[in-house]
């Protein structure tokens, strides 16, 4: 049972929601947001696509099986702890630097990479469970 209204709406909303989820991820360190919330928004966007166009559309859009994201997320989060070692600091010490851009200073740090790992894990968990339940 596909609704043309929902499909058109999803076509419009999914990219915006995904963009918004990255926005939430990036601003999370200073304002409400972060990897967990961002990941939930991104998963909601992907599930919206699934509701409107079916799970095969999700599989196609993801290109790779979503459960691979589970491993990648953990790896990214772990890897974020490594740069500190290169500077002779204990594992997972946060490192920050500011990058000046025309629209203002932009903070970049290893905790952001950690948060990206959280983001990826959350998306992997929700989408994996969604797809498996859909096909069960």
């Amino acid at each position: 049972m596909r609704s043309i209204l929902l499909a058109k709406l999803a076509e419009l909303l999914v990219p915006i929601l995904l963009l918004f989820s990255f926005f939430l991820l990036l601003r999370g360190h200073d304002l409400p947001g972060g990897g967990f919330i961002g990941g939930l928004v991104a998963s909601a966007a992907i599930i919206l696509l699934g509701l409107s166009s079916g799970p095969s559309a999700v599989r196609q859009a993801m290109k790779r099986p979503p459960h691979l994201l589970l491993g990648w997320g953990i790896l990214i989060a772990l890897a974020s702890g490594l740069p500190a070692l290169a500077f002779g600091l204990p594992f997972m010490t946060g490192l920050w630097s500011t990058i000046p851009t025309p629209i203002g200073e932009f903070k970049l740090g290893t905790p952001l990479i950690f948060d990206l790992g959280v983001f990826v894990v959350v998306v992997g968990v929700v989408v994996t469970i969604y797809l498996e339940m859909r096909s069960a």
């Binding site: 360190h29 972060g34 967990f36 905790p111 948060d115």
Partner: peptide, 9 residues
């Protein structure tokens, strides 16, 4: 500035 996030990450 978001202390919830700094605790988490």
């Amino acid at each position: 500035a978001n202390v919830v996030n700094t605790i988490l990450v």
